[in-house]
């Protein structure tokens, strides 16, 4: 399919325009879609929705937009430090830029995932052996540190010293594994 704007490049993006319940299909190449981007970025104004992309879902459903940031300026504040992707860009392209994006946009993700994954918001499957290994140790250290605080508060210093040694042992182990 050829882009209907430039009639040259192949159309890779497919949009559906809905006006008064009437559907119109629009097929554009990446470049032309980019040039027309303004129009597609404000679906509530132009009544555009992106069909084949997740962005369609994100755009169509008002509840998935940044809840407390209705204005354009606020959307730009939320930006991934590592890859520089903004939340507005994420909504537009429907793709994360890097692993850190998940951290940066964390508070907005549950409703999106719920919608895409049949109500699920947390991983239940495989844990990689190496990364999972340190994950397990880090969880243990967290629990022990909490215990340590409680023991100190109760002035049980002998037991606290034991727990502190355990924490040190685990931390050494963690560092030996590369600190990941």
């Amino acid at each position: 399919m050829i882009c209907q704007e430039c009639n040259q490049r192949p159309a890779t993006l497919h949009f559906t325009k809905i006006v008064n319940g009437e559907k119109t299909e629009i097929h554009l190449c990446e470049q032309c879609a980019h040039e027309k981007g303004e129009m597609f970025m404000f679906p509530h104004q132009g009544a555009f929705s992106i069909n084949n992309l997740i962005a369609g879902l994100l755009n169509m459903d008002a509840s998935l937009k940044e809840p407390k940031a209705p204005s354009f300026h606020n959307e730009h504040i939320l930006q991934c430090e590592h890859c520089k992707m903004t939340y507005a860009q994420f909504v537009k392209v429907g793709r994360f830029g890097c692993a850190s994006c998940y951290e940066t946009f964390r508070t907005y993700l549950p409703p999106i995932f719920r919608k895409l994954h049949g109500g699920h918001v947390a991983h239940e499957g495989k844990i990689p052996k190496r990364v999972g290994g340190t994950l397990y140790v880090r969880k243990q250290i967290g629990q022990l540190k909490q215990m340590l605080q409680e023991l100190i508060a109760k002035e049980q210093f002998e037991k606290a010293a034991e727990v502190r040694d355990q924490i040190r042992e685990l931390e050494t182990k963690l560092n030996a594994e590369g600190g990941a």
């Binding site: 997740i54 793709r95 998940y102 993700l109 999106i112 995932f113 994954h117 991983h123 499957g125």
Partner: peptide, 14 residues
């Protein structure tokens, strides 16, 4: 929490 992180949110988790 989210498992294997993927480019597209439709693939996240497993």
């Amino acid at each position: 929490k989210y498992g294997y992180l993927t480019s597209c949110p439709t693939n996240v988790g497993t």
